[in-house]
Nucleic acid binder design. Structure first.
Lengths: 220, 220
DNA sequence: CGAGCACTTGATCGCTTTCAATAGCTGTGG
DNA sequence: CCACAGCTATTGAAAGCGATCAAGTGCTCG
């Protein structure tokens, strides 16, 4: 794997604090990279201040658009974030020379496109309650897939996002997010320990609430 | 350009009638290709029948996911459609051998991803009126970019979608679409000749209504 | 202890949906 | 030629869901 050696030579790490903007929309991007630890968001803001999250970056997710100069969206660190970065020009050069990297990038971009389209259904057609359940399902799945041993029961995870960030992801207001989370808790779909720790007694139930065709309680 | 010759060898054309489903979600896809003439949509349907369009395929747009077996969405011909197809296996083989094709495909996928994210803002944060104006802006822009001479004024185009298809694109009901189109017409933002022919006296005005930061009346 | 922040909860408003009736168009068959 | 079915689109009235406005709670950190 020669290309990994080559990638190693040009990689470096950067650390960002929670709340810090990693990239400003419209700016030149001098690097591409991937999230190592922490959570970041991709957001678009309209002139009047309405904002919509268009991507949620969890560890292992790629950031940047090889071949494009400007950043299309703000990238904001939600928690403290460590990123593995490659300077853009050397990375693009390497990409041009190593087909394997381009292929891998295409795969990842297709995955992102699928995720974006899945999210369009959530935004366009789901109720507030279904939106919340959908987000929780995704977070639960991502969390479980990162746990090496596979199926952890009972399913528990920490909410990485504030109510406002969830609202921006879901096209809702933070008040509605809060109300729907309370409602799911009252109905026993989720159990909260504090404001940020969620446990899901029955993932199948949660997926039903999300309106997805789950018909099974298993992940992945 | 050797790869074009190779592509030529494996390409063929298929014709689909308006209303016909080109690909069923979940089915194996035996080809990839691109739209030559006509309009098709990518849609996702929930079990209870709610449907959301997640892509609009105009001439030159690519269809298919190299490296993936199943189709993720229904592809439906809105008008009569002619597609240029390549059998999937030979195409993938060619792609593996010719880095240029993989690069081109990555470019196109990044474009689609941008379009999907732009649409997430529309779905999540815009009002019904802004949604309609956004769709009309996109159609006007696509239409103009296809006209070889560039800037055609006055801006006129045929609406390729039914009210219901627009509703599915915008996450609205067809009644709301109808009402908002009527409202934009009453306010002079657009002029209708019949139900399907639109002319836009002032594209800047339309873009303002879309809530986008236009600050200029020029296209592209 | 008080300021600041994230969150919750309540009351009301209004936009979009829902339900329903009607119009216009096209094609078919008596 | 007209009647009628079937489809697309428009319009009206009423209902409902989420937004908005407004307190108030609980936690952390100075």
């Amino acid at each position: 794997m020669d290309e990994l050696v080559e990638l190693d030579k040009i990689k470096y790490y950067r650390r960002f604090e929670a709340g810090q903007t990693i990239v400003w929309s419209g700016d030149q991007m001098e690097f591409v990279g991937s999230v190592v630890t922490g959570i970041a968001t991709l957001t678009q803001t309209m002139e009047d201040g309405r904002t919509q999250m268009v991507g949620l970056l969890l560890p292992s997710d790629f950031v940047g658009r090889p071949g494009r100069d400007g950043a299309a969206y703000d990238v904001v660190a939600v928690s403290d974030v460590v990123m593995c970065c490659f300077r853009k020009r050397p990375f693009e050069k390497l990409m041009a020379e190593t087909p394997h990297i381009a292929h891998r990038l295409l795969e990842m971009t297709l995955d992102e496109l699928d995720a974006a389209r899945e999210w369009m259904v959530v935004l366009g057609r789901k109720t507030a309650r279904e939106k919340i359940a959908s987000l929780l399902t995704i977070l639960a799945r991502r969390d479980a897939s990162l746990t090496p041993d596979g199926l952890v029961r009972p399913l528990e995870f920490r909410l990485p996002l504030t109510r406002e960030a969830m609202a921006d992801y879901l096209g809702l207001t933070l008040e509605t997010v809060s109300r729907q989370i309370s409602a799911l808790r009252k109905d026993g779909v989720i159990v909260l320990q504090g404001k940020r720790h969620v446990s899901v007694p029955d993932i199948g139930r949660l997926m039903e609430e999300a309106g997805d065709d789950s018909d099974g309680g298993f992940l992945v």
